[in-house]
C-alpha cells in the first residue's frame, strides 16, 4: 500500500467550499469530487488509527449523540470509537427501547436532542427518509447511519476507501471501469443503494444480483446492470460485494430456504473462481457464514477485505465527523452555510 496519500488541500476548493453541506444524509447529495474529498480526508485517520496513540483533540468539548432507533452493534461502535478518538464526548441513545416506544414522535425526539445542544447527531432509523426529516429540524450536523432501505452513506464511503486502498496496492486508484458485483437482498438494502450511487458516480461498472423477489423495480435506471444468475453476475469482476440476508427473509416469503439460497447465491470458493483472479471479496457484516458466504472465502487472507472494511469504517466516520463539525468549530474558511 502506498505511503503517500494525496493532499486534500491541493485538489479541492478552499475551505468550506470543499464540502458545502450541513448534513450527510445520502450519497445522492454528493457530486463525485465531494465523495473523493471525504475519502482523502479519511486517509489521515487511517494512519492515526494504526498508531499506538489513537487520540486527538480536534473535537474536544463537542457532544456527539448517536441516536439509534434501530438496533445496531457494529455501526454504533464504529461511530462511538470515531467520536472518542477525535476527543468528543459521545453519548449513545438506544432509542429502540426509549420514549419512542411510548409514542413520542420522531420530530419531538429530534427537538429534544437539539435542545440538549448536540454538536452532531448520528441517526439510524428503520424508515426511509427519517434521517432527512430530523436533519431539517435540528441545527447541528446530522449523519445518516442508515435509514430504512434508503441510504447508508458511511458504509458506501468505507467500502470505497477499502477498494481504493486495495487498488492502490495494485498500482492504481481509478474507479473508472472497475467491475463490481453487489449480490444479495438488493431490495431491502440501503448498503446496496448507497454503494450503487457512489460507485456509479465514480465511474465503476456496477452489477447487482438478487433473486427476482429481492430485486427492486427499475434498478437499471440507477445505471447498473441487473442479474438474477449469480455465476453470470460475477464473471470477471474485480470486486464481489456480498450482502447480508436477513434471517426473517430466509425461509418462506422471499426465498425457500437458506440452503437453497446458498446453492444459488452463496459465494463459495468454486464460484469465486469465475471472478477475476485477483478479485476482492467484501461484506458489510454481520455475515451469515455458510449462507451468503462460505467461511473459507470470508477468511481468505489475500482475497477477503472484510476486516479492512471495519477498519476503514472508523476512519471514514472520523473524517465525516471532523468535516461536518468544522463550521461549528470555527475553522478558518468554513463559514456558516447560507
Amino acid at each position: 500500500m502506498s505511503d503517500t496519500p494525496p493532499s486534500p488541500s491541493t485538489r479541492y476548493p478552499a475551505g468550506g467550499q470543499a464540502f458545502p453541506h450541513k448534513d450527510l444524509t445520502g450519497i445522492s447529495d454528493l457530486p463525485p469530487w465531494q465523495i473523493l474529498y471525504l475519502l482523502d480526508e479519511a486517509e489521515q485517520w487511517v494512519a492515526l488509527n494504526r498508531q499506538r496513540n489513537k487520540h486527538v483533540d480536534v473535537l474536544a468539548g463537542l457532544t456527539i449523540i448517536n441516536a439509534f432507533f434501530e438496533n445496531s452493534t457494529r455501526t454504533l461502535l464504529s461511530f462511538e470509537i470515531a467520536g472518542k478518538r477525535l476527543g468528543a464526548d459521545v453519548v449513545n441513545m438506544h432509542a429502540a427501547q426509549s420514549s419512542v416506544k411510548k409514542g413520542e414522535t420522531l420530530i419531538d425526539t429530534a427537538t429534544t436532542l437539539n435542545a440538549m445542544r448536540a454538536d452532531a447527531i448520528v441517526i439510524r432509523h428503520a424508515s426511509s427518509g427519517a434521517v432527512r426529516l430530523i436533519a431539517d429540524k435540528v441545527d447541528c450536523p446530522v449523519l445518516n447511519a442508515g435509514d430504512g432501505r434508503h441510504e447508508h452513506p458511511t458504509q458506501a464511503l468505507l467500502d470505497a476507501l477499502t477498494m481504493r486502498q486495495w487498488m492502490r496496492s495494485r498500482g492504481s486508484e481509478e474507479f473508472t471501469g472497475l467491475k463490481v458485483a453487489i449480490c444479495g437482498d438488493i431490495l431491502h438494502s440501503r448498503v446496496a443503494r448507497s454503494n450503487v450511487l457512489l460507485l456509479t458516480a465514480l465511474g465503476a461498472d456496477v452489477r447487482v444480483c438478487a433473486p427476482p423477489a429481492l430485486m427492486p423495480a427499475a434498478i437499471e435506471q440507477m445505471r447498473v446492470s441487473a442479474y438474477t444468475n449469480f455465476d453470470e453476475a460475477i464473471d470477471d469482476v474485480d470486486v464481489v460485494m456480498m450482502l447480508r440476508l436477513q434471517n426473517e427473509r430466509m425461509s418462506g416469503p422471499f426465498i425457500p430456504s437458506a440452503r437453497e439460497y446458498r446453492h444459488l447465491y452463496g459465494l463459495t470458493q468454486t464460484r469465486l473462481k469465475r471472478a477475476a483472479p485477483h478479485a476482492l471479496v467484501m461484506h458489510p457484516g454481520p455475515m451469515n457464514r455458510g449462507v451468503e458466504i462460505d467461511s473459507d472465502v470470508a477468511d481468505h487472507l489475500e482475497r477477503s477485505a472484510i476486516t479492512t472494511q471495519v477498519e476503514m469504517g472508523v476512519a471514514i466516520r472520523m473524517a465525516c465527523l471532523d468535516v461536518l463539525t468544522r463550521r461549528a468549530r470555527g475553522i478558518e474558511g468554513w463559514e456558516a452555510l447560507s
Binding site: 445522492s28 426511509s128 427518509g129 435509514d147 430504512g148 432501505r149 434508503h150 441510504e151 440501503r190 443503494r193 427492486p216 423495480a217 427499475a218 434498478i219 435506471q221 440507477m222
Partner: peptide
C-alpha cells in the same frame, strides 16, 4: 408505485 423514484428512495413499492 414501482419505478425509479421508489427504488432510489428505498420505499416499499408495488407494480
Amino acid at each position: 408505485t414501482d419505478g425509479e423514484t421508489a427504488t432510489r428512495l428505498g420505499l416499499a413499492s408495488a407494480p
